[in-house]
């Protein structure tokens, strides 16, 4: 990229209570300029209530998964998937008396 400029990534919170999501990126010569410019690039229609502006160099990436492979069978205990059989275990005690089944 241009020698005097760096890429800054912008993340914005759309509403209070929401997490920040990626809004886009821009070129600027320093963080002060990046923050000021980001406001008009990404927020002029009041799309966000707050933004984070981060130099891209500060962002580390790692490849973490391949959706095509499907869930890892050895790690099912990390999700509800791993506890499908629990329903059967309630039968010994007369079934799963959930409030919403009354």
């Amino acid at each position: 990229m241009s020698q005097e400029m760096a890429v800054y990534e912008v993340f914005g919170r759309e509403r209070k209570g929401e997490p920040h999501k990626h809004a886009g990126s821009l070129l600027a010569c320093d963080a002060d300029m990046a923050v000021l410019l980001a406001q008009e690039l990404f927020c002029r229609r009041k799309e966000y209530v707050q933004i984070w502006v981060v130099p891209r160099d500060a962002v580390r990436q790692a490849p973490v998964g391949d959706a095509a492979l499907g869930p890892e069978p050895r790690r099912l205990y990390r999700s509800g998937e791993g506890y499908r059989e629990t329903v059967d275990k309630w039968k010994r005690f007369g079934g799963d008396r959930r409030a919403d089944r009354a």
Partner: peptide
């Protein structure tokens, strides 16, 4: 002088 500034200054 800079595309990003063009947008900001137009606001």
């Amino acid at each position: 002088p800079l595309i990003e500034e063009d947008i900001a200054f137009a606001s």
